[in-house]
Amino acid sequence: MCGRYVMAKTTADLVAEAEAEADANLELRRSWNVAPTSDVPVVLERFVGGSARAGAGRHTVRQVHTARWGLVPGWAKDASAGARAFNARSETVLEKPTFRDAVAARRCAVPVQGYYEWKTGPGRAKRPFYVSRADGALTFFAGLYEWWRDPAKAPGDPGSWLLSTTILTAAAPDPADTRGAGQPPVLAELGELHDRMPVPLAPESMADWLNPSAPDPAALVRRVVDEAYRAASCWTLAEVGPAVGSVRNDGPQLLAAAGPETVAEPALF
């Protein structure tokens, strides 16, 4: 799963690494402890120009927008529906009412520098680990997005529309299988850390995942999940201190090496 992550790069660095342009209203807040219901950057592609009917002159443009982490489907009565929809299981995303419309045409990428996961230790204490690319580059998680209109606000109100997002997850690698196959050791470490993991997009698949007119969403989901372990093979794990367990704590000091303390897995809301 993914319930906390780090995104502290500047807007310019993010836009450059995503090979995108910034939405006119883009506002990013650097954070070393991003939690669900926060506003987060997402990378998506949308059609611009030309005729929607004929398709003539239409083309896609890749943009970075700000979205609330926790997907709110268009049919939801209020925005609180997204509070528990910050992750979407790849095995059921095509059938679940909350996600099935978004996976058909509103796929995005959620850029992160790394994410936190809690490993159960002796006495049910949990130790937080930071998972990130060894080279320091961004990871782009496979995500979905939705637009939701607040029925309590006038249609012309600039705040009447909410953009929200969720992160796709898959089963983590089986430690015994990966070791037996001689795969990168980090994959076994991920399997020992948690039974789920967020799905990283392989660079060669990102354009297809973002394409809003891709003809076979089910095949796309299978593809990015099949590539997830290879994309994660460049990750590294580092144990961090217990301060990350509280959303009140933020800053680069959260990535400091862990001391002897342990901490219970945090409440996400």
Rank of each mutant, 00 (worst) to 15 (best):
R4L: 01
Y5P: 04
M7W: 08
A8H: 10
K9R: 13
T11V: 12
A12C: 05
L14V: 10
V15Q: 01
A16E: 13
A16F: 04
A18Q: 07
A20D: 05
A20S: 02
E21S: 12
A22H: 09
N25W: 06
L26T: 07
V34A: 06
A35I: 04
P36N: 07
D39W: 01
V42R: 00
V48K: 04
G49S: 09
G50I: 04
G50D: 04
S51V: 03
A54H: 09
A56H: 01
R58I: 06
R58Y: 02
T60C: 02
Q63N: 00
V64M: 08
A67F: 11
R68T: 14
W69K: 03
G70N: 08
L71A: 06
W75L: 05
A76N: 00
K77F: 01
K77P: 03
S80T: 13
A81L: 09
G82E: 01
G82W: 00
G82T: 08
N87P: 09
A88M: 01
S90V: 06
V93R: 02
F99L: 07
R100F: 05
R100G: 08
D101Q: 14
V103S: 10
C108R: 02
A109E: 08
V112R: 07
V112Q: 04
W118V: 13
K119Q: 15
Y130D: 03
V131I: 15
S132C: 14
G136E: 04
A137R: 14
A137I: 04
T139E: 04
A142V: 11
Y145V: 10
E146D: 13
E146H: 00
A152E: 15
A154F: 11
P158F: 13
P158K: 11
W161Q: 14
L162G: 10
L163R: 11
L163G: 06
S164F: 09
T165L: 10
T166K: 00
T166N: 01
L168D: 00
A172D: 07
A176N: 05
D177F: 06
T178H: 09
R179A: 15
R179S: 06
R179E: 15
A181V: 03
P185L: 03
V186I: 08
V186Y: 00
L187A: 02
L187M: 04
A188Y: 01
E189R: 12
L190P: 10
L190D: 02
E192N: 15
L193H: 11
L193P: 12
H194Q: 15
H194S: 13
D195E: 13
M197Q: 12
P198M: 10
V199H: 10
E204C: 05
W209H: 06
P212W: 09
P212H: 06
A214F: 07
P217I: 04
A218Q: 06
V221Q: 04
R222D: 15
V225I: 11
V225D: 04
D226M: 08
D226V: 00
E227I: 10
Y229H: 10
A231R: 01
A231D: 05
A232S: 14
A232E: 01
S233A: 15
W235D: 05
W235G: 02
L237E: 10
E239F: 05
V240P: 10
V244G: 03
G245E: 01
G245S: 03
S246F: 13
D250T: 12
G251A: 11
G251V: 14
G251M: 14
P252F: 13
A256L: 14
A256P: 02
A257H: 14
G259N: 08
P260K: 13
T262N: 08
E265S: 13
A267Q: 11
A267Y: 05
